[in-house]
């Protein structure tokens, strides 16, 4: 069985917005995948179905051998603990510091303070944010926020990473840095990393599988 699998998944937002239609695909462990589609194609919706922020109107979603589209809502936190998500709208708390954001997923997993501090330090140097660790997020630039979001998604070393437009707020150089970070993470941890983007220019930069999304339908191409 595949690591992540969509079977004939449709999502209709009320009143009648067809965000996804009959989406079927599967991902294996350790894959690095781009999901490319214009804005409004349904990329964010696809991710929200995996994180259970939304539920599909039709179809089944399987993750790591379990069906998650009808998962009991009590178990949703444990699903989310196994994912690393870079949210399109970042989902940061302006008053929290960079450090607090990084350790949040670790504390949620029950890690103790000293270990969490070590992990956060490592991640901060990886992101190039060492000198910002005790800045409140509202004092960061857009690009720094974006990087922080990536760091928070990776710090607990999840086996599935969903990055929704992780380069949206970044200049070209930083964008490549972030993508490299995600790519290397995928290799190092044997984790599946899915990057959603509207930018076709990014696709050629990494040896990756590409899933195209157009008006809620998928088709595949390989490069």
């Amino acid at each position: 069985m595949a690591f992540l699998e969509f079977r004939n998944v449709s999502k209709v937002y009320p009143p009648n917005v067809r965000a996804l239609e009959n989406v079927t695909f599967s991902l294996e462990k350790g894959e690095f995948v781009f999901v490319q589609g214009a804005t409004g194609a349904g990329k964010t919706t696809l991710f929200r179905l995996i994180t259970r922020e939304e539920r599909p109107t039709k179809g089944e979603i399987w993750f790591s051998g379990r069906r998650i589209d009808n998962l009991d809502s009590q178990l949703v936190p444990f699903l989310r603990q196994r994912l690393g998500v870079v949210f399109q709208d970042l989902e940061l708390v302006p008053e929290w510091t960079v450090y607090e954001h990084l350790v949040a997923p670790l504390f949620v997993l029950g890690m103790n303070g000293r270990e969490a501090l070590q992990a956060a330090k490592k991640m901060l140097s990886l992101l190039g944010l060492e000198d910002k660790s005790f800045f409140q997020v509202r004092c960061l630039s857009g690009g720094e926020k974006q990087k922080l979001c990536v760091g928070r998604a990776l710090i607990h070393r999840p086996k599935l990473v969903l990055a929704d437009e992780p380069t949206g707020n970044l200049d070209e150089v930083s964008a490549m840095e972030v993508l490299k970070l995600l790519f290397e993470f995928s290799r190092r941890e044997k984790a599946t990393v899915v990057v959603a983007t509207h930018n076709r220019a990014l696709l050629g930069c990494f040896p990756a599988r590409v899933i195209f999304l157009e008006k809620g339908r998928v088709w595949e191409g390989e490069r």
């Binding site: 936190p77 699903l79 989310r80 940061l92 302006p94 949040a104 997923p105 949620v108 997993l109």
Partner: peptide, 16 residues
């Protein structure tokens, strides 16, 4: 509200 929302998105249980 935002703090609760963010914690919930990174997998915090209600208790946490």
């Amino acid at each position: 509200r935002r703090e609760v929302a963010v914690l919930s998105l990174v997998g915090a249980t209600d208790g946490f």
